[in-house]
Amino acid sequence: MPLEKFDSIYERAAHRKGGEELLEQLIYKPLSADEIAKISDDRWLAAFTEKVFQCGISWDVVRKKWPNFEEVFFNFDIEKMLMLPNEMWESKSQDPRIIRHLTKVMTIPANAMMINAAKREANSFSEMVAYWPDENITELWAYLKKNGKRLGGNTGAYTLRQMGKDTFILSSDVESHLRNTGIIDSGRDTKRAHQAANKAFNEWQQQSGRSLSEISQIIAYSCGDNRV
């Protein structure tokens, strides 16, 4: 099955959303590489932790408690996180000010180690992410899954999007479109599916000149229940 032209996808999304002007108002753009490179390590750790805790829990509940997380975990200062002994982590996981979940709390030191280790590959974790090539964005997802903790599935990708990195998301609507058009035919989180999706997004990017993030949003608005 030939790849659907991006213009066709865009036209369908605009029709569903009441016109091009209204559609464009819904679409947000990623940050520039230089902007991402300036993000401090502690903000990455905070973002990964927030997304980990939001898995299986109401996002609003996590957001309401988030100031407490920042306080309990010293604003996610990487050096402080790496210095805490195991017994301190167990104690913090029982703090009533946060959502008590030892397994998720233990992702914090693990992901702090991943962020710190990136300095061996780049000047900082932010620089590594910032200049990771779009054409291989799913390899960055794989990096987070392999080197971090609980960052597989859509968790890593959603965090990247939240922090401004240009990436598409295999949301339910996007995944449905890719399956219905024969682009992916295996499990969502398989290397095969990621490579096939990345290839399609690269082609749409060449056709449209838009970011992966914008294309992903437009595809999501073009299908499913996203009608005005």
Results as ranks from 00 to 15, higher is better:
residue 126 S to Y: 04
residue 159 T to E: 01
residue 64 K to E: 15
residue 142 A to V: 07
residue 93 S to D: 13
residue 105 V to P: 03
residue 27 I to N: 03
residue 174 V to L: 06
residue 142 A to S: 10
residue 102 L to T: 15
residue 87 E to C: 06
residue 196 A to Q: 09
residue 28 Y to S: 14
residue 130 A to D: 03
residue 29 K to F: 09
residue 93 S to T: 14
residue 16 R to E: 12
residue 159 T to Y: 00
residue 178 L to Y: 09
residue 88 M to L: 14
residue 223 C to P: 01
residue 108 I to N: 10
residue 30 P to H: 04
residue 205 Q to D: 02
residue 75 N to G: 12
residue 213 S to F: 04
residue 92 K to R: 15
residue 20 E to D: 13
residue 23 L to S: 10
residue 82 L to R: 12
residue 197 A to I: 04
residue 195 Q to Y: 11
residue 221 Y to K: 05
residue 222 S to Q: 06
residue 133 P to R: 02
residue 210 R to L: 15
residue 12 R to I: 14
residue 201 F to N: 07
residue 14 A to Q: 10
residue 165 K to L: 02
residue 19 G to D: 11
residue 193 A to E: 03
residue 189 D to V: 01
residue 212 L to E: 08
residue 78 I to A: 03
residue 92 K to S: 07
residue 199 K to I: 08
residue 219 I to R: 00
residue 75 N to R: 11
residue 7 D to Y: 05
residue 213 S to I: 06
residue 212 L to K: 05
residue 49 T to V: 00
residue 143 Y to S: 01
residue 28 Y to K: 07
residue 187 G to L: 04
residue 136 N to S: 13
residue 220 A to I: 02
residue 10 Y to D: 04
residue 200 A to G: 10
residue 164 G to K: 01
residue 121 E to L: 14
residue 50 E to A: 10
residue 148 G to Y: 07
residue 211 S to P: 03
residue 160 L to M: 08
residue 185 D to Q: 09
residue 146 K to P: 00
residue 224 G to D: 09
residue 9 I to M: 04
residue 172 S to G: 08
residue 194 H to N: 11
residue 104 K to F: 09
residue 82 L to Q: 08
residue 95 D to F: 06
residue 1 M to S: 12
residue 127 E to K: 09
residue 191 K to E: 14
residue 225 D to R: 06
residue 137 I to H: 01
residue 199 K to E: 15
residue 2 P to C: 02
residue 57 I to S: 03
residue 157 A to Y: 00
residue 202 N to E: 12
residue 15 H to A: 13
residue 57 I to G: 00
residue 158 Y to W: 08
residue 220 A to V: 03
residue 6 F to K: 02
residue 25 Q to C: 10
residue 139 E to G: 04
residue 110 A to M: 12
residue 218 I to N: 07
residue 120 R to E: 15
residue 89 W to L: 11
residue 200 A to T: 08
residue 203 E to I: 09
residue 112 A to C: 12
residue 54 Q to Y: 01
residue 222 S to I: 05
residue 88 M to D: 15
residue 45 L to C: 03
residue 11 E to D: 13
residue 87 E to Y: 15
residue 83 M to Y: 10
residue 156 G to M: 00
residue 19 G to A: 10
residue 78 I to D: 05
residue 87 E to R: 13
residue 25 Q to W: 03
residue 43 R to S: 12
